[in-house]
Simulated scan of single mutants.
Amino acid sequence: MTESSTQGITWRVPRAPAAFAWAREVTRTVLTRWGCDAEGIDSVVLLVSELVTNAHRHGRTDADLRLRASRDGVRVAVDDEDPAPPVRRSPDLVSGTGGLGLHILERLSSRWGVEPHGGGKRVWADVPCRFAVTAGSP
């Protein structure tokens, strides 16, 4: 994990069984330290789970996860090695096999996008968050 006040925090999330739980927990810990409100934390943690899952499932690569605080909230960015952009699917509510990712992303973020990054892509989302003033705040 690397940390810088202007760069945010970045870490590698490997394709491993405990990776999702670890990514959610470290995200929750960092945002709590930054003083993000509970609703913002829950939204960011859910988006981290969705974006990392999609990078692993569809990109078939490890993912680089980045959190960066701003005046209005938190930017979440996940990089993978697959250049193909995400594809909107109709949610499969019967079998529960997916299709909700982009819908969740749109609902929880104030804006989001996809951009080329290295040989792959970066999917990012800006998530509203109210910050309390604490010693660890951004």
Rank of each mutant, 00 (worst) to 15 (best):
L102R: 02
P116K: 07
A18T: 12
S95R: 11
P128V: 13
A63F: 02
T61M: 04
W124E: 04
A125D: 10
G59D: 09
D72A: 14
P14M: 02
L100A: 12
G73L: 07
W112S: 09
D72R: 07
V44N: 03
R111C: 05
S49V: 01
R122D: 02
E3I: 14
R24T: 12
L46T: 14
I104R: 10
G73S: 11
L93Q: 11
V76W: 10
R75D: 00
L102G: 04
H58T: 09
L105S: 07
L51H: 05
R111V: 03
A135L: 00
V30L: 09
E81R: 13
R15W: 02
V94W: 05
R71N: 05
L102N: 06
V52M: 12
E39A: 03
V133H: 08
R28P: 15
P138G: 08
V123L: 03
R24P: 06
E3L: 14
R33P: 11
V123K: 04
P91S: 09
L46M: 04
R111L: 03
G113M: 07
A69T: 00
A21W: 08
F131Q: 07
T2I: 11
V133D: 04
L93C: 14
T10Y: 01
D82H: 13
R66D: 06
T53S: 06
T6I: 12
D126E: 13
V26N: 12
D42M: 08
A21F: 08
A18N: 03
L67V: 03
E81H: 11
R15H: 12
C36T: 04
P17K: 00
G8P: 03
A84T: 14
H103A: 14
V94D: 12
I104G: 07
K121Y: 01
D72I: 00
W11Y: 13
L105H: 05
G101W: 05
D92P: 08
R66V: 10
R33I: 08
V13A: 10
Q7W: 08
L105D: 12
G118W: 01
S137P: 00
A21T: 14
I9A: 13
A21R: 15
L65K: 06
G98S: 08
D92H: 12
A77M: 02
G119C: 01
T53D: 07
G120H: 14
A38E: 11
V114E: 09
R68Y: 02
P86M: 14
E106G: 15
R88S: 14
A18K: 07
P85W: 03
G119R: 09
S109H: 06
S137V: 10
A55C: 02
R57Q: 01
A63L: 05
E50K: 04
T29C: 13
E3W: 15
W124N: 03
D92E: 05
E3K: 14
P86W: 13
R130N: 08
A55M: 10
A23I: 13
P91K: 10
V76S: 12
A23P: 13
V76H: 06
I41G: 04
V94H: 06
L93G: 14
H103G: 13
V30Q: 10
I104V: 15
D80G: 02
D62W: 01
T27S: 05
S43E: 01
